[in-house]
């Protein structure tokens, strides 16, 4: 699971009003080189919750992202490289994602988060 995906996941358990961001606990992560594409990074920027990305990257020991970011930074190659690395190259292999409201844990196994809910949590609440 890339941090991009972490940034796109939230807890939708019945009754939870703000299920984002999921707290990340990591047992194992890997770094994988991914082809750099500035357009993708620019297109995604407005959709990214920046603070959640910064915090998730820190959990994985990567603290080079600025605490705050505005679109003017997208002209900087140095910024884009760091943003690229954090968003796409850090992969959580094993760990858990924790719902900020209920503490419910969603496991990440072999790089795949399991977001399935139980019946009483609102399995079919789409």
């Amino acid at each position: 699971m890339r941090l991009l995906t972490h940034n796109m996941l939230s807890s939708n358990i019945k009754g939870v009003s703000n299920g984002f961001p999921l707290r990340l606990e990591v047992e194992k992560f890997i770094e994988k080189e991914v082809e750099f594409n500035a357009d993708f990074l620019r297109n995604m920027f407005p959709k990214i919750e920046w603070k959640a990305l910064v915090d998730a990257a820190k959990t994985l020991g990567y603290a080079d992202l600025p605490e705050e970011a505005d679109p003017s930074l997208l002209d900087s190659d140095d910024f884009l490289k760091k943003y690229h690395h954090a968003l796409l190259e850090l992969h959580v292999e094993e760990g858990v994602l924790i719902c900020p409201e209920t503490g419910r844990k969603f496991p990440v196994n072999k790089g795949v988060p399991n977001m399935l809910l139980h019946e009483d949590e609102g399995f079919w609440r789409l």
Partner: peptide
């Protein structure tokens, strides 16, 4: 995941009911 890997392509894979967990942010 295995099929993607063995063909050298990548997708982010999520175990989910339709797109639960992804759909509000995506």
């Amino acid at each position: 995941c295995k099929t993607l890997n063995s063909h050298g392509v990548h997708a982010e894979v999520v175990c989910s009911n339709i797109a639960s967990g992804l759909q509000s942010r995506l």
